[in-house]
Amino acid sequence: MDEKKLEQNQKDPGKKKTGRSGSRRLVIQSIAALIQNANLKGFFTGKIYTGTTKKVCVPGLNCYSCPGAVGACPIGSLQNFLGGLKFRFPYYVLGLLIFFGALLGRVVCGFLCPFGLLQDLLFMIPFYKKNRFKVDRFLRYLKYAVLLVLVIILPLCIPLTPTYCKYLCPSGTTAGLFLSFANSSLRRRLGKLFAWKAVVLGIVVVSSLIVYRPFCKYLCPLGAFYGFFNRFAIFRMHFDAEKCVHCQACVKACKMNVDPTKHPNSMECIRCGDCVRACPQSALEQGFGKGHSGKTKKEMSQNHTAEL
C-alpha cells in the first residue's frame, strides 16, 4: 500500500460515506462526555462533585478529580485498591472493567471516552498530518507496559502511590488545569510535579494535532485493557470475504491503521465505523452479536493467491 496515498486519504476523513455517520459519532461522544461531566458548576467553583454517583466507575478515561466528573475513574480506582496500605483485591472495579470490555470492547474508546473525544477534536484542526510512520508498530506495545508497570506493579510495590495517575495521566492534568483556573489556593500550590505532568499533556496535545489519537495508540492502559476484549466482546465486526473486491478503501479510511479485512477484531480497533462506511461492497459490518470474521487470515490469503 502506498503510504503517501493512505496519508492523503486520512487527511480528508470526511470524504465519501463517512461524513454524516462520522458526525453522529461525534454527537454521541459529546453527549457521553457531558453526561460523565454533568457537574458543570464545578468548572466555575473549582470544587469537585461529592454525590453518591461517584460510587460507579465510568467506562472511559475521565479523572474523578475533574470538577465536572460525576463518576469515578476506573484506572484511578484500580490503583487505589492495589496500592492501599493493606492489599484488597479490586473485585468491584475489575468486575466493572470486565463487564464493559465483554459487552463493548473498544466501543468505549470510539464512542464513550471523553479523552478520546478530545483527541478526535484536536486531530480535526488543520495542521501537518503524519499518521503512518515506521516506529508506530513498536510504540503500540508501550501501552501494555504502562498497564502492567504503572497501573499494576508499581502501585502494588509502593503503597499510597497511584503511579500512573501521578506521573503520566493527561486526564488528571486536564482536571488539575480546570481546578486551578477556578481555585486560587490550588493554583498557588502548583509545583514541579505539575510542571512535569503539564509537559506530558503538552506532548499529547501537540502530537494529537499530527497523529490520530496518539495517547490511545501508544500510552493508554484502559485502551490496552479493552483491546483484549475486542475479539470476544458481544459487539464485534464481521468481514465477508466473498463480498470484498480488495479495493483497500477500508484500510485507507482507518485512522488507527488497522486492516479490517485481515483483523476485523484487532486489539487496536476503536470501533469508529469509518471502514464500514467506506466499504463500497458492504463487506464489513459491526454491531452486537455480529459473527466472527467470515474467513481466517490464512483462508483469506489463500483466496487472494488463487485469484492472482
Binding site: C63, T161, G176, R189
Partner: peptide, 11 residues
C-alpha cells in the same frame, strides 16, 4: 472519588 486526588492533578 469525592476528594481531590493530589497525585492525579499534579500536586
Amino acid at each position: 472519588a469525592v476528594r481531590i486526588c493530589m497525585e492525579c492533578v499534579g500536586l
